[in-house]
């Protein structure tokens, strides 16, 4: 499994993600977006950062770059794709997943540790967990509020496509535990098929044994196969 971590101008979590993937035994390499995806790409990460300076809307420019067409066709062939933070904004802008991540309710950039509850443990990204498990994980975003029409959200929930929700340390999904005003506390979702996932929290920041928590490793192991 070789995972391409796509670098755009303004990506800044790309190297961290490569290192975190290597830590869980996944071969990963940086790929500059203009170079296109290398042959044999078996997984794709859209990493965090501020691609194109967040011009227009976070992720809007990168979502229209040629490499995203390659990402879309590989995703259709079943190649796993994980968008993290700015990568999730890009993924929603590119319609790889529904909805949008937009301005936090606070209108501020927020960098803090939060708790998320695993809502569906049947996906590649969550099979290391049980449904209902709570993960402590950092967020670092100004535009992370999940927004979508109510009827479409109901459809996503009916199809069990919400991956994570912000919650208390005990796993209760409350308004007080919602850091950014996301609808129904949604922190991550999957596409029409669950090998495509977009999430605002940063699993790669809690995946290195040397610096503490490894709570995010289970998510990154989604690339490791069953």
């Amino acid at each position: 499994m070789t995972v391409a971590v796509i670098q755009f101008g303004g990506s800044n979590c790309d190297r961290d993600t490569v290192r975190a993937l290597q830590e869980v035994g996944v071969d990963a390499r940086l790929v500059w977006h203009e170079d296109g995806l290398p042959p044999g790409t078996e997984g794709i990460v859209l990493p965090g950062g501020f691609s194109y300076g967040d011009y227009l809307r976070a992720g809007a420019m990168a979502a229209r770059s040629p490499v995203i067409d390659e990402v879309r066709s590989l995703a259709e062939e079943g190649v796993p794709v994980l968008g993290i933070c700015n990568g999730a904004q890009i993924g929603c802008e590119a319609s790889l997943t529904p909805g949008a991540f937009t301005r936090n309710r606070s209108a501020r950039f927020q960098c803090e540790r939060v708790h998320i509850r695993v809502e569906n443990a049947g996906t590649p990204w969550t099979r290391a967990f049980e449904t209902g498990d709570v993960i402590e994980i950092p967020i670092a975003h100004g535009e992370g509020r999940f927004e979508i029409a109510d009827d479409r959200l109901a459809g996503l929930e009916y199809e069990n496509r919400v991956l994570f929700r912000y919650c208390t340390p005990d796993g209760e999904v409350t308004e007080a535990a919602n850091p950014n005003g996301s609808k129904h506390n949604v922190a991550g979702i999957v596409g029409e098929e669950d090998h495509v996932a977009m999430m605002m929290p940063h699993p790669e920041r809690v995946s290195l044994t040397d610096i503490g928590s490894t709570a995010g490793q289970g998510i990154l192991r989604g690339f490791a196969g069953t």
């Binding site: 227009l56 809307r57 809007a60 229209r64 929603c92 802008e93 529904p98 909805g99 949008a100 937009t102 927004e147 979508i148 029409a149």
Partner: peptide, 9 residues
Amino acid sequence: ERLLANPTL
């Protein structure tokens, strides 16, 4: 429709 606006928002 393709860039300036996001139909979700």
